[in-house]
Nucleic acid binder design. Structure first.
Length: 415
DNA sequence: TCTGGGGTCCTAGGACCC
DNA sequence: TCTGGGGTCCTAGGACCC
């Protein structure tokens, strides 16, 4: 890197992404308390389908489903600011939220729509700055260092261009932080939300980062934060004053040295353009808690469907895996997992179902269940040209594996 | 009528091999 | 007969993130 170039990394975060996308469709809801959540389509949502030929923007507010009419499980994915004023927050149970503000509009989560907008804003960024790391549906890191304009005013010029272009082409706003690395860029992007830009320079660490709570560091969650509090550390500045050895004594070598580096604003992780998935999974929380014996038939149907979905996902994305596992959550919210690794890479629903069934036998099933999940890990990309052909060695292996399994005199299935 | 779904990474113990 | 590592793979659980 020529001496005149400083490493400039941006973190871009879409503002209230799901809610903003919904407000593009339903501008009449602007300013009203609104929550998004509850995957299960309730009867109320049929109202939204029944708008006939009217534009969505002309559906009367009175026609929208209300939180107070909702029955069932589920949590809030997004709550708009007017809804938050009633004490509603994301991850709150829908039923609890309904008590706080029954009149709030309740919209179901529409992932396909959010993904379309996600694709759109990321394509806009890539056109301007090609080094982008995907961090989920509403977040990215961008390496500004070598992009024209990326050094001007600490990155502000390029950040403004990206922000403006996204707004012009999608109607959505975002917040951007530009800093010497990903760790600091992520924190900076929160400084001027919404629709803000924050430029953080290396020598501003003490002044702008050290006063913040440790929890603001991406990677310090509720557990680590609580432990830090117990040890008398509240702010990042206080964390930075501690000795590395002291931190390693209390948090282990790896975490301790990482905490120390993070508090001093040090982070040399690169912006990663592409990555391969490690696992693919599906899970579902039941409408009511189910019992392995009494609700055997119902569970069996759900179990088989999850396996089928995982197999479909694997095949669609072009992967096979050799570690098959399950996840259970009991009615007391305790979770267990079991998995098993086999020799061949597979992506066939029947084999996944078979192996997952074996895993299920290794788990206690007296207590009622609220969630069941199926996972395939240790993934390998399969050749796209032969991925579905009969000559594919993978498919042959699958057939072999299926036979092997069938000859294991299939013990009685639990479900 | 608390507490979603889809991920990644780390730790720690045991098996097994050299 | 006892003793010592190191390395890798597998499994289960947990912290954390979006």
């Amino acid at each position: 890197m020529p001496p005149s170039l400083i490493r400039r990394i941006a973190h871009l975060d879409m503002d209230a992404f799901y809610a903003s996308v919904e407000l593009l469709r339903y501008p009449q809801l602007k300013g009203l308390p609104m929550v998004i959540g509850g995957e299960r389509r309730t009867a109320d949502n049929a109202l939204l389908q029944a708008h006939g030929d009217r534009p969505l923007s002309q559906i009367a507010i009175t026609e929208f489903p209300r939180l107070g009419d909702y029955t069932g499980r589920g949590v809030i994915t997004t709550a708009t600011y007017p809804a938050r004023q009633f004490g509603i927050g994301s991850a709150m149970g829908l039923m609890k939220a309904a008590k706080l503000c029954p009149q709030a509009i309740l919209l179901p989560v529409d992932f396909p729509e959010y993904r379309r907008y996600s694709r759109a804003f990321k394509d806009i960024i890539l056109d301007i700055a090609p080094l982008m790391e995907d961090r989920g549906v509403d977040e990215v890191y961008i390496d500004f260092t070598h992009v024209p304009g990326g050094q001007r005013d600490g990155g502000r010029v390029l950040a403004r261009l990206i922000q403006k272009t996204i707004f012009q082409q999608t109607g959505l706003t975002c917040s951007i932080g530009v800093a010497p690395n990903k760790l600091l860029a992520k924190m900076a992007s929160e400084f001027n939300k919404p629709n803000g830009i924050a430029i953080l320079l290396e020598d501003e660490l003490q002044q702008r980062i050290w006063p913040l709570a440790c929890r603001k560091i991406n990677g310090i969650g509720p557990k680590t934060d609580e432990k830090l509090h117990t040890l008398g550390v509240q702010t990042i500045g206080e964390l930075a004053q501690r000795d590395v050895d002291w931190l390693m004594d209390h948090f282990g070598q790896k975490t301790g040295s990482w905490l120390f580096a993070a508090a001093h604003g040090r982070d040399d992780r690169p912006v990663v353009l592409e990555s391969e998935p490690v696992s693919i999974s599906r899970e579902t929380t039941f409408d009511r808690d189910l019992h392995a014996v009494r609700d055997k038939a119902e569970l069996g149907v759900i179990f088989t469907r999850l396996c089928q979905q995982v197999a479909d996902d694997l095949q669609r994305k072009g992967y096979a895996g050799k570690t098959i596992g399950i996840k259970l959550r009991y009615d007391d919210f305790k979770s267990v997992t079991r998995d098993q690794t086999i020799q061949d890479y597979i992506n066939d629903a029947a084999i996944i179902r078979q192996m997952a069934g074996q895993c299920l036998k290794r788990v206690p099933l007296q207590q009622r269940l609220r969630l069941l999940g199926v996972r395939v890990g240790s993934l390998k990309k399969i050749d796209e040209d032969t991925g579905h052909g009969p000559q594919n060695p993978l498919v042959l292996n699958q057939n072999e594996a299926r036979e092997t399994i069938n000859t294991i005199a299939i013990e009685q299935q639990l479900f």
